[in-house]
């Protein structure tokens, strides 16, 4: 019964612009509907307040996140320069085991940013499912846990509360390098920040020791074999930090946009319902007036 009672106001909201004249026919009981509309108006106003606040919070966080992203880019790019100069290529070993690190976060309400990553992962897994997954953040864990739970070896939580720190990236890199399986290549998937409106899931490669050692210009750096492991671990942490910071910036900007749209939609709905509310109230008043006048006329005649 409850849902039935809530429906007329909803339907009326849609039909309001189209056929205001028939409103009285749909709602013979004007008073109850008025109260219903009022209730909905109130709840939409509250939602609008919340989404507006969330948008403001996201905007403030976005500026910080963007600053962190530009700073972290230095880490990633410096680390990449080494591999570019050495002309490192991914090792092409038969039966290689790949680890894909998906950088999402714990929080939702930010559009399709997490599902974009999940979708790309699923697409990859449909082509070739011979890789393991390490998932950062609860959102992608929940999404991929349903479809690819067999491939997951690690999952991390507690990401995205604040701007990611290098300590975060280091701890994750440590945990990944402590995994029992020896991965020949580690791919980090994150949302690349194109501009405030656009982002796209991309993959960066963190090279394995063999790949680094086999790169053509490797001799130029005069790196001892012993410290090669260090270089690899450090490069992984750098790449992760970059990916985390960029993903974080994307998330904040996506959240800002999502909340902006939500507030706009709420505003539209408020307008619609306000008009409906006024019209219905007017109709009720007119109806009462008609009743009074007819009553008065009838008693005069009699």
């Amino acid at each position: 019964m409850l849902s039935r009672a809530a429906h007329p106001a909803l339907r009326a909201g849609v039909a309001a612009a189209a056929r205001p004249a028939t409103l009285n026919v749909i709602h013979p009981a004007g008073y109850a509907t008025l109260r219903e509309i009022e209730g909905r108006l109130k709840s939409i106003r509250n939602i609008e307040k919340i989404t507006k606040t969330m948008k403001i919070v996201a905007s403030t966080k976005l500026t910080r996140a963007q600053r962190a992203m530009t700073e972290s880019r230095t880490y990633g790019q410096t680390s990449n320069t080494v591999f570019e100069q050495a002309e490192t290529k991914a090792a092409d070993v038969e039966g290689k085991k790949t680890l894909v690190v998906v950088c999402s976060s714990d929080k939702g309400l930010c559009g399709g940013i997490h599902s974009g990553l999940s979708r790309k992962t699923r697409k990859m897994s449909a082509e070739n499912s011979d890789f393991d997954l390490a998932i950062l953040g609860e959102k992608c864990k929940a999404q991929l846990g349903r479809s690819n739970s067999k491939q997951i070896v690690l999952s991390f939580a507690g990401i995205g509360k604040d701007v990611p720190t290098f300590a975060d990236a280091q701890a994750i890199a440590d945990q990944i390098s402590l995994l029992p399986t020896d991965y020949t290549s580690i791919q980090i998937m994150y949302n690349k920040f194109v501009n405030a409106q656009t982002y796209e899931p991309v993959i960066v490669e963190a090279f394995s020791e063999e790949a680094i050692a086999n790169s053509p210009n490797f001799a130029a750096f005069e790196i001892d074999d012993e410290v090669l492991t260090n270089l690899r671990e450090y490069a992984l942490a750098n790449a992760l930090y970059w990916a985390l910071a960029e993903g974080h910036a994307c998330e904040q900007s996506a959240r800002r946009n999502a909340m902006d749209n939500a507030s706009k939609n709420a505003g539209d709905m408020i307008n619609k319902f306000q008009i409906l509310f006024n019209r219905t109230r007017q109709a009720v008043i007119t109806g009462e007036l008609v009743e009074i006048i007819t009553g008065a006329a009838a008693s005069e005649e009699g």
Binding site: V153, F156, D168, I172
Partner: peptide, 14 residues
């Protein structure tokens, strides 16, 4: 504050 790390993790075993 830059060195804070408060992550949790879980190992998945099939």
């Amino acid at each position: 504050r830059r060195g804070e790390m408060d992550l949790r993790f879980a190992k998945w075993e099939v």
